[in-house]
Design a protein around this nucleic acid. Structure first.
Length: 489
RNA sequence: CGAGGUGUAGCGCAGUCCGGUUAGCGCAUCUGCUUUGGGAGCAGAGGGCCGCAGGUUCGAAUCCUGCCACCUCGACCA
């Protein structure tokens, strides 16, 4: 049992908070709502980022960078964007400080007031489309497939590490196309990348689908989402891909001359995933002993713990350990040899479990004599001995096995917590239990609002291809298909 | 932004009701010895503007007033 880690059954939110801190992922900062991502946590984010970046580039996207500050007037050009983000924007009003004429410290120089205030970007559609206007004249300039890795600020009143912070890191893709079909294709291509990334790398099963209109991104025609189910039965929106239609092209007057020699508005998509994915990763796999990481995203896939008492033992053990570290590294495995002499082995075992390292190998004199190594896998907590000559094959095999096991385990959990509700009473009971609930809905925002008021459940997404006629569980009106309800983060 | 709560050592807390020795405990830190295959034991040591500013009092962590910060719960959100 990890020292001082609250169990999930005792309090899931507390468990999460303590885990994030104790596993050295992140901590609160001096600025309310902003987090410090610590090196170990950032290493995981870097692995996610590198993989996503690779997938974007494989599908023809390029990276660029747009400014942090957005002129206030840009936001007012697109009415829905204002409505969506106005309540959570940080605003820059001055550009200079001065020594306090009445005392200690510095004050804002009143003479440095900006003529036009600047908004710290909550998302970059407006500044990007005001730029695309200059880049696009003819169909020959299309498509534009740009992504940027950036920080954004949304002034949150109730922050939680990784899940909801005032500043967060993300990528935002912004594409421009000649036709609606092309933009929709792009939107769905990215949704598929997100799904594959979540499932194949994070080992997190996700449910792709489209958001109902009242849950979509302001300014989008359609918002697609991947929804994941956390261990406490709550859903986490883990990525979104928007078909923006011509909303931003019209707001910023971005037109192109088509094949047919006609001026037409450009079609758009935008899409993003953020450091919130860290929250999904943690809340999907981890247990009461700490973090559990899928091998593909583990900063260290294998940790080596040397065990020795006397100095003559130490020399032999260390020589072997250093060689094993080199051999594993040469095979492309991320490995950590824990050489800390201040800490005892038991402490190290617990510490690396807390940090979620998939495979631990203990190396002691007894093992040397028996020509074997003691393996421990983090996901199942099994311990077993591996003959020396099999060590490389077993490590490589185990990493794949653990990756698969985590996904299958999470998928099984989701299946066991996915239900169908056919009456209002049934729906209420199932939502109270937690999990995904498939139910008929009459398609109106009014009904969705009432369901939310009474149960706190929202429509997470409308999955594709499950057409089935039925009656709305709340209003009893006609419904063309089931939608997925859950309580959400 | 509404409603509650909490600010005491790096972290977690007791003490505050009912004012009165040198403000205490656990973890962490430092020193020494013994330990080292599942978060070591013993002995010793260091560390505090008791959130901030006023007030009451011979005397304030403790009582009063104001401010600030953080946490939990609601409304909003990736």
């Amino acid at each position: 049992m990890a020292k001082g880690l609250t169990s999930r059954s005792e309090s899931f939110p507390e468990w999460y908070n303590e885990l994030v801190r104790k596993a050295d992922l992140a901590e609160n900062s001096a600025v309310r709502g902003c987090m410090v991502i610590k090196p170990y946590g950032f290493a995981i984010w870097e692995l996610m980022r590198d993989q996503l970046d690779k997938m974007f580039k494989e599908t023809g996207h390029v990276n660029a960078y747009f400014p942090l500050f957005i002129p206030k007037s840009y936001l007012s050009k697109e009415a829905q964007t204002v409505e969506g983000f106005a309540k959570e924007c940080a605003v820059v009003t001055h550009h200079r400080l001065m020594n306090n004429p009445h005392g200690e410290g510095v004050v804002v120089d009143p003479d440095s007031k900006l003529e036009e205030e600047l908004i710290v970007r909550p998302t970059s559609e407006t500044i990007i489309w005001s730029t695309y206007k200059n880049w696009i004249q003819s169909y020959r300039d299309l498509p534009i497939l740009i992504n940027q890795w950036a920080n954004v600020v949304r002034w949150e009143l109730r922050p939680r590490l990784f899940l909801r912070t005032a500043e967060f890191l993300w990528q935002e893709g912004h594409t421009a196309h000649a036709t609606a079909d092309e933009a929709i294709d792009e939107t769905l291509t990215i949704l598929d990348i997100y799904k594959r990334f979540a499932q194949d790398f994070m080992a997190v099963p996700v449910l792709p689908g489209v958001k109902p209109l009242h849950e979509k991104f302001p300014g989008a025609v359609d918002t697609y989402t991947i929804e994941a189910l956390m261990q406490d039965g709550k859903a986490l929106q883990s990525g979104t891909s928007h078909f923006l239609g011509q909303t931003f092209a019209k707001a910023f007057d971005v037109t192109f001359l088509s094949h047919e020699n006609k001026q037409e508005y450009v079609w758009a998509s935008s899409w993003g995933v953020s450091t919130r994915l860290m929250g999904a990763l943690i809340m999907t796999h981890s247990d009461d002993e700490g973090l559990v990481l899928p091998p593909l995203l583990a900063p260290f896939q294998v940790v080596l713990i040397p065990l020795y008492k006397k100095d003559d033992e130490k020399e032999k053990i260390m020589e072997f350990s250093i060689q094993l570290e080199k051999d594993l590294r040469a095979r492309g495995i991320r490995v950590k040899l824990d050489q800390d002499e201040q800490k005892r082995p038991g402490w190290k075992f617990a510490e690396w479990e807390l940090k979620g390292v998939p495979i631990r190998i203990a190396i002691g004199s007894r093992d040397m004599e028996n020509n074997q190594l003691e393996f421990a896998r983090r996901d199942t907590k099994e311990k077993f001995f591996v003959p020396m000559e099999e060590r490389f094959d077993r490590i490589e095999g185990l990493l794949k096995e653990i990756q698969d096991n985590l996904f299958n385990r999470a998928l099984k959990f989701r299946e066991e917590n996915t239900f169908q509700a056919n009456s209002w009473e049934e729906f209420q009971a199932l939502i109270e239990k937690g999990g995904f609930v498939y139910a008929h809905w009459d398609g109106t925002t009014e009904t969705a609002d009432k369901i939310k008021d009474e149960t706190k459940a929202t429509i997470r997404c409308i999955p594709e291809g499950i057409a089935e006629v039925g009656k709305c569980i709340y209003s009893g009106k006609e419904s063309g298909q089931r939608v997925v309800f859950a309580k959400a983060y």
